[in-house]
Each structure stands twice: as C-alpha cells, then as structure tokens.
Design a protein around this nucleic acid. Structure first.
Length: 583
RNA sequence: GCCCUGGUAGCUCAGUGGAUAGAGCGUCCGCCUCCUAAGCGGAAGGUCGCAGGUUCAACUCCUGCUCAGGGCACCA
C-alpha cells in the first residue's frame, strides 16, 4: 500500500510540474512516512515543502496542486493538506485490514523480505581469545551479533557467521604455561611460585586437574631452575617469555603441544557450549593457526614485502601503514622473530576477501577502534577494497555491583562470566537487556539490579503479552467457541475500536522495522518495537473483551490478536528470546 | 595532544531534517464478581550540555567549546 501511494505521488508530482510548466533542476526525493499522529492520517509526505524552493511556490499551493493531480487509488479514502504543507493520506479501513490475513497466512515466515537482494555477507563476531571463559563484555557482542545475523537473514541477505579463533601466539603460550605451573603445584610442588601476569583464574586449576585425570605423563621439570626463574626480579613480561621458552624446552615439542591442545580444546569447548546455551551459533570456526600452517601469513608478508610496504627497523619488520592513513607504522614480526597478531589478521582478512563476499562485517569491542586504520590499510596494501569491510564497534558494558564499579580482567581472573550472568538473570532477560540499547552506547549493567528485580525487565512485559494471547485461545477451546482464522477483509470490518486501529497500524510497521534494523545494523529497533507492540496489546486487552457473544466481532478480534501473537513470537525469535505460552 | 562514543524527565534510555520531544523505573491518584494486576488509565516531571551556522523547518546536519567514558604497545 505504501509503495502504491509513493508511486502515485510521484506521478502526481510530475503531472503537477508539467501542468505548471515547471522543470526544477533537482527533483527532491519523493518519500512517504507513517504519520506519527493519527490525526495526520496513515501516511504523510513532505514533498510540497521540499518543492517550495525549486518550484518557487508556497508549499500549500504545491500540496493542493499535487492533490488535484493525484491518480484515483483504490484503498485511499482521502488526502488532506495540513500544517505548513504536509500531504496526509487517509487509507480506507479495508486497505490496512489486509495485514491480518497476510500475517496469518505467512505465519512463521511473515516478516521475510528481499530487501537485502541476496547480498553475500560475512559476519564475524565474538572471536574472543580462547584464554578463558566468556565474560559479560563478550556477551554483549554475542547477543548483538546473533540478533543482527538473524535480522539480516530475514531481510534477504545471505549471511555467513564466523568466529575467529586466536589459537596461536603468545597469549596461548602464556595460557599453556599457566596450566603447567598449576599442574606442578597440584603435584609435588605446592609452594612453587606463579607469575602475576599469567592467567590466574580458577578455571586454569580445573583444566590442570582434568589433565591429571588423563594420566598423560609429562617430562620432569628441573624445579630448582624453574624456581630461580620465577624468583628473578626482571621485567615481568620478559620473565614470562623466559618461562615460556623454558617450558617448551623442558617438555619438548610433542608434550608441549599435547598440553597446549588439551588446554585449548577445554576452553574452546567451554566457549562453544556457553554460546550454544545462549542461543548463539556460528557457521564457521576459523582457526588462526591454520593460516600460519598453510603459509597464508607468510605469503601475505611476502606480498607486502614485494610491494615495498615493509621495512626493517630495530630488528623488527614493520608495515608502512602510515601510507594508508594510519597514524603510525605497525610491527608485523617482532625483534624476537615472533609474528604479531596483526600479521595473521591481515592474512585472515585477505582470506575473507578471497571467499567472495559482497560485504564483510566485523563486530569489535570499542576498545579496538584504533585498530581499524591499520587493518583497512593492510587490505588496501594487498590489493583489496577496504570499503567492502565494515567494522561495527560495540561499546563495553561497565559493570556495577550496586554503586561499586567492577574491574574486569581475564588475566587476573576477576570477572563475572557470561554463564554466571545467564544463570542468575536468565537467558531471555540477558539477551534482551544487551540488545535493548544502541550498540555504540555505553551499557551500565548493575548486577544487583538485574538480578534482584529481574521481573521488572522489559522482556517479561513482551512475553506476558504473548502468554495472555495464548491464554485467550485456551479459554476459547475450553468454552468450545468457534473460530475461523481464514477471515476475509470484509469479515474483519467489525474491528472499529480505536485500540484496534492502533494495533493494526502497529502490525503494519513490523516488516519495515526489520528491514531498517537490518540495513542500519541496529537490532535495538526491534526490541523497542516489540515493547511498543506489547504496550498496544495490553492497552487493548484492558479495554476490550475478546471472547464476546457476537460471533462476528469475536472472530475478527481473535484474528487480530492471533496476528499480534505471531508478530511477537516472530520478533522474539529473531532476538533469540523465547515466547512462552504461559507465565 | 590525537582518535572513537556519548550528554534528551529524578534515574536508565528511545527518537531515520518535519506537525504538541517519548518510554521504562521512581513519585502521586485511580482500576480486578469480568479472557493472567508480571496488566491498564490519569497526574506531576524538559532552556533536548553550551554557543554559533545551514534550512521553509534542527534533539536530528555542520563548526567551535565544554563535560563524561573509552582508545592511542615489538599486548590482545
């Protein structure tokens, strides 16, 4: 209906201009919007005001002219000119009643569109380092990414989701060493020291215990030498590197890898399980190590070298990212010969480009924003188009326990895990809470509040609307009342109450909300929409009885609320939130 | 110093250049013999951080300032 009006408006505008013999150089975009106020009709256009200047006529005169030239349109009741020159369209009742049979016949599929034109999208998100359990900060990216993926899929994009596993590099070595030291402490050396910058979390001890139960023998350590190393008073990071080297040489390549893989496997399994329970799954789990072993990283470096984008300084190999707009050149290979994560990130992004996507989206924590110019620069340097890469930043969640701000650090082990949060607040409320905020907005998450007043969470309000509708249908069955959901538009005309008109208008917005939320990458729009829809429903519920004597009114109302239930259920589904039948 | 976000009701936040700026929580007053009161209605509460500019029209776009959070490693 909206498209039809828009189309006819375009015709009316050109007829009007031709009639007046006007040929403005630049024709403003002809757009139609849903009127915010019911007094302003159903749809409204500001075109007359936009034309005022190019046409050199007062907006109201233009509006009148457009109205006179407007083609006869079925379903359009009348056109009003209002305010400074708005053209307001009032639709015939039957025109917008059509939404109800549309929703009921499409059911679970209602809301799907082809707006995305099947564009192939690679969406990478979470990609937390497998050095410990997911914490509350990762949860936000997980919820945001998965809802966005759902939205884009429904809006007609071809979405592939991916988790990049940093299963190589120094952090992973630190992790393996952390487990080994805990192993030794569990064995015959309970008094052995533990570096302050190794992973302190309790889960490290658990992994060590699990390893013990596998009965895998590791080469004996020279404890005196190790103790001396641990007691050295040198730079903590240098010391840690020495301990890593010591661990490697003591254990030997094979046993070291065994321990390393065991640890990685444990943590990765934990993360996968955690995400699965949170309703987040990925098409691909992409291994960083695979890029190194396949030689992709090395060949990337060769390419950059050949292009003259690399140079050596201070014993390290640098990428000249300043040539591509970065504020500083970046190291790819450190003085000690180890590659930085940036080196494999370049290879990873090149790999993404080579897989032939139309657009590549990365969701990162906001603290990584300084990383954007160097990655885009590197993409340009290897001959790809950085414009195809979109990086969405999700601001961190700041955690409070009451008034107390909590520090979070995976290294120190002081953090609230996503799992803890889910267990205490519930999956539904957690997901909804994360997404009910613009992603670039800081999120103050008060744990005490979220946990103690979980019933105040808006998610229950929406779920409650769904449960109430289900309950009405249960009553209907109990009382053996007739209901035919195949009503025609004419049979729906008993829906004359103002609250009913509001509901119907709210339902018509759903499809557009999905498309806008998907294209703008703003899943929170759906959360707010569902909240509004639930509000409309609760208001309706309080003002009208559905299971009335009059069969015509009853059936029409039941169709309306059934369509509402469908939208709530579809919308919550996209958010990964359940739609319970009773509460 | 440079970069990214944000500043809207007491608090937490929506608001895609349009008509009288909205919601939740909190406060106050009402509504269950009736489909779930985890609900509904009403009231109070605003110089949309400040100052300019663009526009017929600015919370929305631009510039400057200010305040708050974050980022500026041979860490990730």
């Amino acid at each position: 209906m909206k498209q039809l009006i828009e189309q006819n408006l375009t015709i009316a505008v050109s007829r009007f201009l031709a009639d007046r013999n006007l040929h403005p150089e630049k024709l403003p975009a002809i757009a139609i919007d849903h009127a915010r106020d019911t007094q302003h009709g159903d749809l409204a256009s500001n075109i007359a005001m936009l034309l005022a200047k190019p046409a050199g006529l007062p907006p109201r005169v233009i509006a009148e002219g457009i109205r006179n030239f407007f083609p006869a349109t079925e379903g359009l009741e009348r056109i009003e000119i209002a305010g400074p020159g708005f053209i307001n369209f009032f639709l015939a009742k039957t025109a917008y009643l059509q939404i109800i049979p549309d929703i009921l016949s499409d059911g679970l599929n209602y809301g799907k569109s082809t707006a995305g034109k099947g564009r192939k999208i690679l969406l990478e998100y979470v990609s937390s380092n497998p050095t410990g359990p997911l914490h509350i900060g990762h949860g936000r990216g997980a919820a945001y990414g998965s809802v966005l993926a759902n939205l884009m899929q429904v809006a007609g994009y071809d979405v592939t989701t991916e988790y990049y596993v940093n299963d190589a590099g120094r952090q992973m070595d630190i992790l393996a060493v952390s487990v080994w030291l805990r192993l030794l402490q569990l064995g015959e050396h309970p008094d052995l020291g533990f570096p302050s910058n190794a992973y302190q979390g309790k889960y490290i001890e658990q992994i060590a215990k699990d390893f013990v139960s596998t009965d895998t023998a590791l080469p004996k350590a020279d404890i005196d030498a190790l103790s001396c190393l641990l007691a050295l008073s040198i730079d903590e990071d240098k010391k840690l590197d020495q301990i890593i080297a010591y661990t490697r040489s003591t254990l030997g390549i094979k046993p070291y890898e065994t321990l390393f893989d065991f640890t990685l496997g444990k943590i990765l399994a934990e993360i996968k399980q955690d995400l699965l329970e949170f309703g987040v799954s990925f098409n691909n789990w992409f291994s960083e190590r695979s890029l190194i072993t396949s030689g992709a990283v090395a060949s990337c470096i060769d390419t950059l070298q050949a292009n003259g984008d690399l140079y050596e300084a201070d014993g390290a190999k640098w990428f000249r990212s300043t040539l591509y707009g970065d504020e500083k050149d970046r190291v790819l290979i450190r003085e000690n010969g180890q590659m930085t994560y940036f080196a494999s990130d370049i290879a990873y992004h090149l790999n993404k480009f080579e897989r032939g996507f139309d657009e590549i989206i990365d969701i990162w924590g906001a603290d990584h924003h300084g990383y954007i110019p160097r990655v885009k620069g590197a993409i340009a340097a290897v001959g790809k188009d950085p414009e195809k890469l979109t990086i969405l930043l999700v601001q961190f969640a700041t955690l409070y326990r009451g008034k107390q701000k909590m520090q979070m650090s995976t290294r120190s082990g002081e953090f609230v895990t996503l799992k803890e949060l889910r267990n205490e607040v519930g999956n539904d409320a957690t997901r909804f809470f994360y997404v009910t905020r613009k992603s670039e907005q800081h999120l103050d998450f008060d744990l005490d509040l979220a946990k103690s007043h979980s019933n105040d969470n808006p998610v229950f309000y929406i779920q409650y609307a769904h449960a109430r509708i289900c309950s009405v249908f249960k009553q209907m069955h109990d009382r053996a009342l007739d209901f035919d959901q195949q009503l025609t538009v004419e049979q729906l005309t008993p829906l004359t109450e103002p609250h009913e008109q509001n509901m119907i208008k709210a339902l018509t917005r759903y499809k557009e909300i999905i498309i806008t939320a998907a294209t703008n990458r703003e899943p929170h729009m759906l959360a707010f929409y569902l909240r509004d829809l639930a509000n409309d429903f609760h208001t309706y519920y309080n003002s009208c009885q559905f299971l009335v004597e009059d069969i015509n009114i009853r059936q029409a109302r039941l169709c309306l609320i059934k369509a509402t239930r469908q939208i709530i259920s579809n919308g919550l589904g996209l958010m990964g939130v359940s739609a319970p039948e009773e509460m």
